[in-house]
Structure formats: C-alpha cells, structure tokens
Simulated scan of single mutants.
Amino acid sequence: MGLQALFFYLFAFVAVASAFMVIASRNPVYSVLFLILTFFNAAGLFLLTGAEFLAMILLVVYVGAVAVLFLFVVMMLDIDFAALRAGVLEYAPVGALIGVILAIELIVVIGGSTLSPEIASNISMPIPPVAERTNTAALGDVLYTHYVYFF
C-alpha cells in the first residue's frame, strides 16, 4: 500500500468519524468543532486528488466563514436543547423511513455498477491528467474564456 493510499484511508476514516460525531454530539459547540474537523479532512482528500483550488476554497469559505458563523450563533443564542430533544421520538419513524429509502438507493447505484461493469468501462475522463495540465490552470482557462465571452 502506497503512501497516498494510506493518507486517503486516514483522511476518509477521520472525516467519516467526525461527521458521525457532528450528529452524535450532545453539545452543539462540540458538534460545530467536529464539523470543522470534517471540513479539514475533506480538504485533505481534495488535495490528494489534485484539486488544490477546491481544497483551499473549502477551507476559506466553509471553515473560515460558515463554520465560524455557526459557532458564534450557537454560542450567542440561549437555546433550550432539552425541549428540542423531547420531540425527536415523534419524528423518528419518518427519519427511519427516509434512511431506509436512501440506503436502498445506494445499494441500487453501487449494485448496478457491480452487476454491469461494462457501464463503468464506458465512462471516459473529461479532463486531462494532472501531469499534462493542473486543475488550477484548467480553471483559469475556463474563467478566462467566460470572461472574454461576457465582455
């Protein structure tokens, strides 16, 4: 197993574990901090795929703005979370039904690609490999093309 695969599994495991802790944490401040950790690991996964621009945008926009805003709103508001949790059991059957539907959809999508591998072989890569052209340069070409077209 290569170093890149090791880091992929590390980032993916921490991202999934911290995403679970976002919804499992009882304290909303801890939940926002776990959300920030999830964003950092998602940015690490973007860096592994060569999408440096998306990784930096994720960190700047989501961690720098949205997650901090969530943190300040949660800390500034005095919400009675005990009253909010009292109604959770009322909506549990609807949530379980939606979860089962999503699980069935995932099984159909993953099972469809496993049962008919010729579909997966017909998919072509729309972008050149990173060795030929970096993602940031390709994004600059797209933005320049749209800028010239607009004006």
Rank of each mutant, 00 (worst) to 15 (best):
V16E: 11
V109R: 11
I104S: 15
Y144N: 15
G111Q: 14
Y9G: 15
L139G: 12
L71Y: 10
A65N: 02
Y147Q: 01
A103M: 02
V60P: 03
E118W: 02
I110W: 14
N135S: 00
A42V: 11
A82R: 06
L54K: 04
A51L: 02
V32H: 12
L97W: 15
M125E: 13
V142D: 01
L37T: 07
V108G: 03
Q4N: 06
L10K: 01
G2Q: 12
A24D: 11
L69I: 14
L139C: 05
G95M: 06
G111D: 13
V73S: 14
Y62M: 07
V61S: 03
L84T: 09
F81K: 01
A103N: 09
A12L: 05
N135A: 08
L37M: 01
F70Y: 09
A137F: 04
V94W: 06
S25D: 07
A17W: 13
M125G: 07
F39A: 13
E52Q: 09
Y149M: 09
F7I: 06
V100G: 12
A96I: 05
A82C: 15
H146M: 04
N135L: 13
V29N: 13
T38G: 10
L102N: 03
G111A: 03
G95W: 06
P129R: 02
F11N: 10
V32D: 14
G50W: 15
I101F: 09
M56F: 12
D141P: 06
F150G: 01
V88L: 10
V61K: 11
G64W: 01
A82S: 15
V100R: 08
S31F: 00
L48K: 03
V142E: 06
E52T: 11
F20L: 04
F72M: 07
A138G: 02
I123P: 05
I104Y: 05
E105L: 04
M75L: 01
V16G: 08
Y91I: 12
